[in-house]
Design a protein around this nucleic acid. Sequence first.
DNA 1: CGCTGATTCTTGAAGTTTTAACCAAGGGTG
DNA 2: CACCCTTGGTTAAAACTTCAAGAATCAGCG
Lengths: 165, 165
Amino acid sequence: MSNEPAGEPHWLSDEEQYAWQSYLHATTLLEDHLDRQLQRDAGMPHVYYGLLVQLSRAPRRRLRMTELAQNAKITRSRLSHAVARLEKSGWVRREDCPSDKRGQNAVLTDEGLRVLEKAAPGHVSAVRAAIFDRLSPEQVGQLAAICRTVADGLQPQGADLPWLR
Amino acid sequence: MSNEPAGEPHWLSDEEQYAWQSYLHATTLLEDHLDRQLQRDAGMPHVYYGLLVQLSRAPRRRLRMTELAQNAKITRSRLSHAVARLEKSGWVRREDCPSDKRGQNAVLTDEGLRVLEKAAPGHVSAVRAAIFDRLSPEQVGQLAAICRTVADGLQPQGADLPWLR
DNA sequence: CGCTGATTCTTGAAGTTTTAACCAAGGGTG
DNA sequence: CACCCTTGGTTAAAACTTCAAGAATCAGCG
C-alpha cells in the first residue's frame, strides 16, 4: 500500500524521469490530436468513438451498460452521460434488458454504424500516421508488452468500487 | 475487416490493433489512477499538479503563461482556467510581466511549494508502483524511445494554431 | 413471504475542458 | 504617425467528467 514514511521518498532516476516526461508529452499530445481529429471529422470525442467501436464489434451490436463501461475502462456514470448524448445524436439507442429488469442495453443504430464506417478510415490514418508509421515492428511489439504489463497492474481487483479504482 | 469507402483504408494489422488496444487501456487506466491519487492526496487533478512541477523547476519559480502552456502541452485557454483555479487555492499567483505589458507570469507561491513537496513522495510512489516497478530497465529505455518518436511527430509545426494542433 | 444487502443504472451539481470570440499590446511598414 | 497583422492572454458558453446520492431490481435467507 502507501508506505511513505518521512524517510527517503525514493525519487525517479534520471532515465526514469526522462521516460516519464516523454510518456506524458506523447500521451497528452496524442490524445489531444485524436480528440480534435474525431471532433472535426465525426463530431464526437475519442472516448465516444471508442464506445461506438465496442458496440460495432459486439454480437448484435448491443452491450449491457456495465459491460460496455468495463470494455472502455470508464465509470458507469460517465457512460450514462455519454450514451445520453449519443442517443440524442441518434448513433445509439437504449433498450431494456429482457433477462434483468434493472439492465439496459446500448444498441448501435444503423445511422451510428454509418457514421462509424465513415469516420473509421480517417481515424485509422491518424493513428497510423502518429504511431505505426513511425515505429519499427519491434517497437510495436515492445509497446504492446509494456502497455499490457502496466494495464494488468491497474485492473479490477481494487477495493470498494465494483471494478474500477 | 469490412468495406472500403474510397480507395484503400489500410486497416491496422492484428499486431498493431492489439498494441493499440493495449495502449488505450493502459493510458486510460493510468491517467484515471493518477488523477484519483492526486485528487485524494493533494486536492487537484494530475494536469494541475504538472503545472506546479513545471513552475517549481523554473528559474525564479515563475514562467510566462505561454511558455508554461507549451511545457505542459496544453492550450492557453485551458491554462488560463487552471491558473485561475490554482490562484483561488493559493498555490499560484499571477504577476505582470515587466518586459511585455501583455504578458503574465505564473508564480508558484510558498504555500504552493509546500503542497507540492507534501504531495510529491506519494505521487512518485504511485508512478513507480504503476510503471517502473513493473518494467525492466530495457523496457524503460524502449518506452522513452517510443514516446520520444511519437511526441516528435505531433509537435509544433501544425498549421493555424501557434504551436498546438 | 419479508428482510437485508448487493447490483444496475441514472441523476444533479460542481468542477474541468473546449471552442470561438475578443481585447490589448507589440512590431513592422509606409 | 496611421495602418495592419501578429502575439499574449482572457472570457463566456457549451460540452464533458466526476462525485455523491438515489431509485429500482435482484438474490439469498430465515
